[in-house]
């Protein structure tokens, strides 16, 4: 283990390499660009790596799919309008159960918005595409978790064969700080899906009848529910005797955690996985509190998920929403004092 001084985007590349990534396909878009740049630099040094700069995010996503079919861990990174285009390949990965890995660095939206920051790509990353959101989505709250959870994203993608994402944001992407870099104790194995001479496979994504497709979907949805218990993850901070529980995710949760440490009887519940969502735990914690406050840099994308999870709980629910704006610990303290 060693301590390094890195930006979030550089941490992603370190983690991807530790997790066994061999190919990256990417298209530059702020604030994710340094991921492509750093990986391209690594690929120059290491002949086992390959970086392909594609003509757009669609092509980057399908390139990732092609490489995965060939049995290699590969990934892409994008943000904002790129995340919109990326839904095309992601929906194919969802339909074919391919271990697609995407790093999403949220920026301000809608449209080109800002290149800076937001938490507005929750819907797209969790539920984008013309499907059911059978995806695994990690939301790290600091640079160390960017490293830890990127490795988990790769591992779980290949272990469970659902498209998997690390949902960061412009702050986490650009911030530079100390991070512990280590060799992971566990790495998932890869499998060549197409082109294995030992077995002929014909993979389809088009079905002729409603029933045919419905049968496949039932199976996938059922499997997703089965594996959810192994994946869903959360952090609870100062929740034991808290009267007020803040619900937040990502870097906003870090601000809220800092605020909680200075406030009395205020706790934080933070889903580490947005998909699958830690619904049961969220409900249990919300039930014990007098008041729940859902805090996010979006106008309710996260809040809808929380309210859905805690449905039926009688606790008062308040919302604090700052779409495309950062939220500081001071702000939270001011709000709750």
């Amino acid at each position: 283990m060693q301590t390094e001084f890195l930006t979030g985007n550089e941490v992603v590349v370190k983690a991807a390499l530790s997790a066994g990534a061999r190919l990256m396909f990417g298209y530059p878009i702020t604030p994710s660009t340094e991921i492509t740049k750093t990986f391209a630099e690594e690929a120059i040094k290491n002949p086992r790596l390959l970086f392909i700069q594609t003509e757009d995010e669609i092509s980057a996503g399908f390139g990732v799919i092609g490489a995965i079919l060939g049995g290699k861990k590969s990934f892409t990174s994008t943000a904002g309008p790129g995340t919109v285009l990326m839904q095309d390949p992601i929906s194919m990965a969802e339909a074919m159960r391919l271990p697609f890995v995407g790093i999403i660095t949220q920026r301000g939206g809608p449209s080109t918005g800002t290149v800076i920051y937001s938490q507005q790509e929750v819907n797209l990353t969790c539920f984008g595409g013309n499907g059911e959101g059978l995806r695994i989505v990690y939301s790290p709250s600091n640079l160390q978790e960017v490293y830890d959870l990127t490795i988990k994203t790769f591992n779980n993608a290949w272990k469970y064969r659902f498209p998997s994402f690390l949902l960061t944001d412009g702050y986490l992407a650009k911030a530079k700080s100390k991070v512990e870099i280590y060799e992971p104790s566990y790495l998932s194995t890869t499998k060549q899906i197409l082109g294995d001479a030992k077995k002929i496979v014909n993979i389809r994504n088009t079905y002729s009848t409603e029933e045919e497709l419905a049968k496949i979907l039932d199976k996938y949805i059922n499997e997703y529910e089965q594996i959810s218990k192994h994946i869903r993850d959360y952090e609870s901070y100062h929740c034991t005797d808290a009267k007020t529980i803040i619900f937040a995710h990502g870097s906003v949760a870090s601000a809220c955690r800092a605020a909680c440490s200075q406030l009395k009887r205020v706790g934080l519940f933070r889903p580490i996985t947005l998909r699958p969502f830690p619904e049961y735990e969220a409900k249990m914690i919300a039930r014990r509190a007098d008041k729940v406050i859902i805090v996010e840099s979006s106008a309710g994308q996260f809040s809808r998920m929380v309210k859905n999870a805690i449905f039926g709980v009688k606790t008062v629910v308040l919302e604090y929403q700052k779409p495309a704006l950062g939220i500081t610990p001071e702000e939270i303290i001011g709000l709750l004092k």
Partner: peptide
């Protein structure tokens, strides 16, 4: 009796190029 895959409309070229890079 050869490996085949259906992709998305217009996306076969980048998918197969991606495969070739890996294999």
């Amino acid at each position: 009796d050869v490996d085949t895959i259906q992709t998305h409309h217009g996306r076969t070229t980048p998918t197969m190029a991606g495969f070739k890079f890996a294999k």
